[in-house]
Nucleic acid binder design. Structure first.
Lengths: 139, 139
DNA sequence: GCCTTTATTTAGAATTATTCTTATTAATGC
DNA sequence: GCATTAATAAGAATAATTCTAAATAAAGGC
């Protein structure tokens, strides 16, 4: 758990804004996500967090992931019916899932694509969140 | 189960191409999806199918949905961790989910948006399927 | 710094959509 | 029409996630 000062205050500020406390467990989970940005599942995050904090429970990992998501610090990513994955990349991006390797990469999106999507909505419909999941192969 | 001739042969041809049989249950499930295009869940499809075919089982509904999806006749739609929903609209489209009403509508996409998305992938990455889920509110 | 209040964590039970298993039933090809 | 093979039915099993209740830890007032 070597959360650098920048991320530590990012975490504290965001939690405080939501009226939540900055706890060691929330710090640990956030740190796991920042350390290796490979879109881990709750189980994988639990395994990694336990290396440094053996007493943390799976339920707490789920709780932390929920509060971090609600505070806008991380993002939950779903692929079909697979376990939810998490990423700390908050820029608007899509996800590419390689069927062969299981690798998941972030695809940066320019503002143009997003506004075209919003423009495709019928009048009176306002987009709040756009999830784009692309799957295929890489070589 | 009043599957018109056009859809009946569409179903039979698609199943035959996949080496599968056209059964009453598969016809029934397909018909339920065509009758009311409101993106029902497996449970809802089960309830509707039972009105006309009381002996159908939930497991069969799941099996039929899987074979219809694999045969390319219907599409599975996922919103976050919610139960999978199904739709018979095979044109490339996104889904809009209204948080207030739960309503789900299809958003037609022009080829332009899709090719821009494909162009955003790094070299060597090929898109096979693109899922776009937009949520927000309507008024 | 200590005490109270309130939030958070823990551990394990509960939930729920979905899949699996096995016996039964129904299509298909001859 | 009969044998073969696929599909269905019913219920058990699975797995990710959520819930529950008791224990613990932060935060603010004194």
């Amino acid at each position: 758990m070597q959360l650098n000062a920048e991320y530590k205050s990012l975490l504290e500020d965001a939690l405080e804004r939501s009226g939540l406390r900055a706890t060691k467990q929330r710090e640990q989970v956030f740190s796991v996500l920042l350390d290796k940005r490979d879109h881990p599942t709750a189980d994988e995050i639990y395994a990694r967090a336990r290396c440094e904090m053996p007493s943390i429970s799976l339920a707490t990992v789920y709780n932390c992931l929920e509060t971090l998501t609600e505070s806008g610090l991380i993002r939950a990513v779903n692929f079909e019916r697979e376990p939810t994955r998490y990423c700390p990349n908050l820029t608007q991006h899509a996800h590419f899932y390689c069927k062969a390797t299981g690798e998941i990469i972030d695809i940066d999106l320019n503002e143009n694509i997003l506004s075209e999507l919003k423009a495709a909505l019928p009048p009176g419909y306002r987009a709040e969140h756009i999830e784009i999941a692309i799957n295929g192969h890489s070589n």
